[in-house]
């Protein structure tokens, strides 16, 4: 049965979802090793590590979309900027 073919998998998308899955697994292990302490950083709400990851990913998605929508330069810069945003939110958010 072609259970997978209809999903029209492409390598980049597969890599993307594997990365997300790895991130979730990584966060789980990290959380089990050293539980998060909720804190108030630059963001206007008290966050845990998981909250910051979610906000960071959302921010990265929006940065990428903005890059696509506004510039014609290669997407890699947008992706890089998104990654920087994600790290910033994780660290200081």
């Amino acid at each position: 049965m072609d259970l997978l073919s209809w999903m029209a998998w492409t390598a980049p998308v597969a890599i993307f979802f594997v990365c997300i899955a790895l991130m979730l697994i990584g966060m789980t292990i990290w959380e089990l090793r050293s539980p998060t302490v909720p804190r108030k950083g630059l963001l206007p709400l008290v966050t845990t590590r998981g909250d910051r990851l979610f906000i960071g990913l959302l921010l990265a998605a929006y940065i990428n979309l903005a890059w696509t929508g506004v510039t014609d330069l290669t997407q890699w810069w947008g992706a890089m900027l998104g990654a920087v945003g994600l790290v910033c939110v994780m660290r200081w958010g």
Binding site: A8, L65, G69, Q75
Partner: peptide, 26 residues
């Protein structure tokens, strides 16, 4: 996941598609 896959391809028919990257988002 399937929709994400669709969004980066030009679906010509159920069995035929071309990878187009960010084109549709643009």
């Amino acid at each position: 996941m399937t929709v994400v896959n669709y969004s980066v391809q030009d679906i010509l028919s159920p069995s035929q598609s071309v990878f187009v990257g960010w084109e549709w988002y643009k």
